[in-house]
Every structure is written in structure tokens, then in C-alpha cells.
Design a protein around this nucleic acid. Structure first.
Lengths: 224, 224, 224, 224
DNA sequence: GATGAATGAGTATTCATTCAT
DNA sequence: TATGAATGAATACTCATTCAT
């Protein structure tokens, strides 16, 4: 009876996709794409809602009919970006060993897509520091991603018998950190290693987990 | 595009320290300290020049007598923070091996000082993305630091004969990235490994550079 | 200056009721009812056309099929409210004397219906200050009501021989003013007299018109 | 030590006047005067902060250096208006009896000053309905004024022995209501009595309190 | 009749920065 | 050096209204 559907725009944008007119969904997608580009290139703070609207070919009001506001848009941009990232690898995933996959991530790390994603995450991190709501949402999204990746590494550990004594969550987080950290350095104008170099180092780290004793127990004579 | 670029006669704040009355220097230091705290805690964008002034016990106008503007203040805060970071370790540097020092960095990575520094750098990175002038200055400051650290690793490589075939700049950058990347994850509300875990992993990576063949040449059969 | 003045073909909403399908009439009535509630409770400025639509179970577009716009809705809400007010008393009108009726109005002045009406009129008054079209329409509606009431008092004066020298329009207006003025005070958070007290004072005023000489002629020695 | 004086603009504007640079005070007064005019003439909702600034010959930022915002400005405008109203009568207050003073208020009720004040109060009342903070502040200001006036009437009652059985607060509130109510009618485009007529009616009401028995006790046979 | 996606004008508010004192 | 009053540009967000379907 109460068709509050219009008055209170869905705005639970967190998971939507269903319950949206095809038209509305298309608009939503278009807006997210524009927003992602702008946030990543110009920086969250410097981007204007009007700018996003213009880029999308809409009026600023249209943005607010679909998203709660600029912050919500950022969160959704991150969500979409993460989702897309995951959907991008599959092709080679089955055929290689996990360490190779990890290393592969760095090989492609200079691709436009990956860079955009990394920049976006950087902007999101800073926005999250000030906006609790953003932080909470991003936390959920990203933690889930790390969890998935951790599970993959745990499975790899079990199957290969490698990395005895190494915490897979720590390892996974560290790998993600490297990627993000390079994004920070890059933003700061510091030279970062080439994809090949990063990739090689990461592979080396992963390999070392197979052979060497867990460092933890005998850090002093580890090399003897 | 470059904002704070107009050269005002009385401050080339980039390298100052000389040419300032003790009183002025004290004021300058106090301002930087307040600014660093605020930028790190509340975020660069959210911090107000007036807020910094208030925190320091000055009027906003007084800030502009010492710094070119908010952006300049950020750069100087980073410079001071970096300088302080370096001055903090020395004590133990001579007595341990480089890998242990690297690992040590992560051990103390949860100290208030280090966290503040990491947060500041995160804010700086994002600000640098929008402000070319900031980026240029920070680039110089940080590149120098990485260079120093790289030199230390290169020396270690030479002395220990370890890490054949590994690019020391890449390694150094990677180590710094891990630290910064964890700062990003932390800001995003994602759990990060404990200092012990990070430290152990890093040590393991460093150790592996001694034993194993350089991964680069034979990535496919690296573990055989 | 006159905003809602453009004459759209299908609604001269001013006097409608005829020329509408039963269904349309029902919708119209429902909308007015919702609008009245919202305007009175939340204030004209704070109420949204979409909010009214949602409350009514319609889309905002539907409102515009029936009313020229928000302002028109306000006018119609007032018209309906006034009409209803008049229809509410009749029962006792014949049995009591006019002064008693006047006093009675204040007795019931705290009823939900009366309060809503008073609040609506307050909002309307302020809206009318800015919107000439609204003002003109409300003026017509309300002036007519005061005229009716004035006529009743004039008849009473003639019949009872009371209130010699007193202008009945002035008296009527004053009685209405008291009611509205209390609404203003109430909105301002100022305590207003109880219905009993107001009622008693009004009755006393009316009574005084019977006994005392018209004050007008001898204001100076009035109390001697 | 903390000179937060600049960072947190005084903003306790409620009672200020002291602790303000002469210059600042002058600015403050000028702003209030402009705001009062605009609010009264164009209506609170229709008035723009920029408009007030322009009228005052300042930038919009200057307004916010002195007032919390538009709402605060409204409250202060009312406070100033009330204060000024009180300061305007004194001349004749001592020489006349209270009823005559009450009546006098209506005589001058068409003066520009009084009209402006009444319009302002009307706008304030409507704003108060939506903004609790405004309501609370206005409530305090106006309640105090009614209290003062009530005290005067109570004293008059005691001294003259008049108005036995009549609640002086109720009477006072009613007198104020009449004034405000006429403002509402006027805004609604309804004719209001001339100052003379209003004045005469009020005087008559007041006089009746002297002679007649309190209506309260014998409402039923009041006309017999 | 109704829907709801889209418009786009309108505005309060913030804040880095300047400058007369 | 310091103050703090003043500037004025910049922007997120709201909402009455329209119109293709």
C-alpha cells in the first residue's frame, strides 16, 4: 500500500543490482564507472559530484537519486573495482601454482586497470580515516577479499606441504600490502621496482617458504 | 597547477633551520609538531589551518608568517617526521645484521611514533596526487631516504655475499612498501599481522636471499 | 511574481469537486488529508512533495496530476480545513448565545483538529508572505469566513441590542486573532492559557459589550 | 595559553555584547539590522545569507564569523527586536494606567517598527516549529518578556483592586496573542481592524475587568 | 491516471588566505 | 611578529517540477 519506493530511494546500494530497473541499473553502472575513473585520477577530495555527473552525461541530481552521496559513491566504486579485479584473473588461475599466481599479480601490476584500482584504494583509505561509515563498509568489503585470498593460501599450504609454521593470513596480508604500499610510494613520486623485479622478489619470498625452516623458531641460525 | 609555488621572499622553508631566531625556530617547531599530530590523526583534508593555530596557541595569521600555506606545512611535517624516524634507530644499527634491522623495523611498527609517521605519509601521498608542488618536494625527500637505505643494503650485499642477482633498490622499496601498505590496510579497517608475524616474514624473505639461487633466472624450476 | 498562476487546462482546483470521477475525487481527498497533516506537523517548508506522495501511497508525479504544485496543495488544504471547521460546530450553534459560542471555540481550542487547523493557518500565513498567488487565494477564502462570522455577530448585536457602538467586524477579527495569536505563541514555545482561562476571558469581553457604555466615547474617565 | 579565541568564534552570541571588539560589535549590529529587515520583509525562508551579507556590505563569510548560521541570526534578530520594542515605550508608561498602556500598544500597532517586529516574530514562530534549537532560544526570550508584562499586570491588579478572579498571565498572554494574531491575519490578506478599533476593544476588555463580577463563577447567567 | 527517472536551479556553510593594525 | 576581521571561491546536497513510458 505504501509505495515509499520512490520517496526513499533504495539507497541500500550496498548489495543492489536486483530490484533495479534495467534502465536504473545501467545508469548506476555508468555513474560508478565515471566515478571510479575520476576518483582514481584526480583524487577523491578534488572530484566534484557535478564533475562526475558531467562525465556521465547526467545532472548532479541524478547521482543522488542513485547514491546516498559522494562517500557512498566511493564505497560502491571500490566494491565494483574489487569485484572486477577478481573476475579478471581466473583464466590462468587453475594452471599455475599459487606462488606463481601471486607473482603474476605483480607482473600485471602496471596495467591501467590495476593502477586505477590501487589509486582508488589509496583514496578510499584516506577517506575512510575521516568517515567512519566509509571505513566500516570498506572494511567489510576488503576483509572478505583478504579472507578469500587467505583461504586460497591455506589450501595451497595444506596441499603442497609448504610454509610450515607460517601464518597464511599474515602472508596474504603482506602480499596485499606490498601492492598497496607501492601505490603509496608511486603517489609520493618515489621510483618503484619494475613489475618484473617485484614479481621476482615475491616469487622468491614464496619459494623460501617451502625450503627453509620456519624462521620463527630459530631466527639466529636460520642460514647456517 | 602548482599551487604553493609562488616564491615569497622570506621563506624558502624547504631547508630552513638556519637564518631563524631561536624564538622563531621554536615557534616553527611547535607548529610542525601540532600539524603533524593533527594531519596524522584527523587527516590532511579535515585539518584546518585555524585548528593547527589553535592547537599551537597562535592565530591563523601567524602560521602564514612561517609557512607558505597548508601544503607547505604538510611537506615540512613529513620532512621532520622522516628525519626523526632515522634518528630513532641508530643505537642498535651497528650491532645487528641488516636483515635483523629490517625485521626490527616491523617489530616497532606499532609504536605510536611509527604509526603517526605512517599515517602522515599516507595523507601526504594522497595530497601529492593533487598538488604537483607537494609531490615534487616529497619525492625529493623520500627518494633520498630510499637511496640511503638502498645504499645500506647494497653494502650489506657486498659484504655478506648474499642476494646475488637481487636488485637492492627493488628490495629496499619492497620493504618500505610493506610498511606503507599495512598503513593503508589499517586505514581501510583490515586486520594487519602482528609486529611479530610481519617481522618473521620479512626476516624469512631476507634470509632466503642468501641461500636460494636468484629466482629470476629460473622461475619455473625454482624449487626443484 | 505569481508563481502557480499559469492556467493548466485540466484543473481549476479552486472549487473543484464536480467534474471529477469518484476515484479521482477520493485520491484528491486523500492527498489533501496527507498534505494537511504533514504541513501542520512538519511545517510547509520542511514538507516534500515526495513526502506527501509517499504518505498518500502515490508517486510524486501523481500529485501533479491533481494539483498545480506544492503551493496549490497548501491552499486547498486550508480550504478544506476551514470548511471542516465550520461543519464541526453546527450542532450546538442554535442553542447557545453568540458569546457562549465564541467562548466555546476556545474551550475546544486544544482539540487535535483545531490545533492542526491553527498550525496549518500559521504555515499558510508565512507562505503567503512570499507567494502572492497563495496570498490572494487564501485571502479570498478567509475573508469570506470572517465575513460570515461578522454577519453572525451583527445579527446578534441587532437582536440583543448589545454592543452599541462596537464594530462587529473588528470584534470578530479580534476573536479570530486571539486564536491565531495563541498558535503563534505556542509555536514560539510560550505558555498559553488553558482553554478554560481563554474561554472565560473571551466570555467576559463579550459580556462587557452588553453592560458598559461604549468605551470609545469616554476613554479618559472610563474607570472613574 | 590556548588562544582558541579565534578558532572557535565566540558564538555564544546569545548574550554577547561584551567581550567584543568595538569594530566587531559594530559589524554585528549592522548585520542584525539588515537581517531583521530582510527576514521581516521577504520572509525567513526566502532570505539568503548572501543577501544579508550584500545588504550589509559584507561577504557571506563575515556573517559566519559572527553568527552560527542563518538560524542563529534569526534568534538574535528577534532578541534585538524585542529589546528595542521595550525600550521604545517608557516615555508614556509612568503617566498612564495599565489598561491605557495596553490599548496604546494597539494604537501604534501600525507603525513600521511594530509591524516589522510582528512580521519577524511570525517568521520566527514558523522557523521554530522545525528547528528545536531556535524554538528553545526563542522560548526563553519571549517567555521572559511575557513574564515581565504579567508582573506589571499583577501589580496593577493589586494596586487598583481590579480584575478580581482573573488570571493575569492569561490576560497578558491574550493581549499579546491579539497582536500576533492580527499579524497572521494580515499576512493572510485578511483586513484587520484599525488601530483605533483594536485599541478601543482592548480598553473595553480591560475596563470590564474592573466592574463586572468575575465571569468565571457564574457563566450560566452571565447575560441575565 | 500513474510512474519514477531525470533535471537543474538554488544555498548554507567552510576555509585557505590576505592584510590593515 | 602577531592578530583576527574579512574575503570569496568552492561544493555537496535538496527538491519542485517535468515528461517519456
Amino acid at each position: 500500500m505504501t509505495r515509499a519506493s520512490e520517496a526513499l530511494p533504495h539507497h541500500s546500494s550496498s548489495y543492489d543490482g536486483r530490484r533495479l530497473t534495467p534502465k536504473a541499473l545501467a545508469t548506476r553502472t555508468r555513474i560508478i564507472e565515471s566515478a571510479t575513473d575520476l576518483f582514481a585520477n584526480d583524487g577523491y577530495a578534488a572530484v566534484t559530484v557535478r564533475g562526475i555527473a558531467a562525465e556521465t552525461g547526467l545532472s548532479s541530481g541524478a547521482i543522488y537519486a542513485t547514491f546516498r552521496g559522494k562517500a557512498d559513491l566511493l564505497v560502491e566504486a571500490v566494491r565494483a573495482s574489487i569485484t572486477e579485479d577478481l573476475a579478471t584473473l581466473p583464466a590462468s588461475i587453475v594452471k599455475k601454482t599459487l606462488p606463481e599466481i601471486d607473482a603474476y599479480q605483480f607482473t600485471i601490476s602496471s596495467s591501467a586497470r590495476r593502477q586505477r584500482s590501487r589509486k582508488l584504494l589509496l583514496e578510499a583509505a584516506v577517506a575512510a580515516r575521516t568517515d567512519d561509515d566509509v571505513r566500516d563498509q570498506l572494511s567489510t568489503i576488503l576483509q572478505a577479499r583478504v579472507d578469500d585470498w587467505t583461504a586460497a593460501h591455506t589450501e595451497w599450504k595444506r596441499a603442497s606441504g609448504a610454509a610450515r609454521g607460517t601464518d597464511m593470513r599474515a602472508l596474504t596480508t603482506l602480499l596485499v600490502s606490498i601492492d598497496l604500499g607501492m601505490g603509496v610510494l608511486s603517489a609520493l613520486g618515489v621510483e618503484t621496482p619494475s613489475p618484473q623485479q617485484s614479481s621476482a622478489l615475491v616469487l622468491q619470498l614464496m619459494e623460501s617458504l617451502n625450503t627453509s625452516e620456519p624462521v620463527r623458531r630459530a631466527p639466529k641460525r636460520a642460514r647456517s
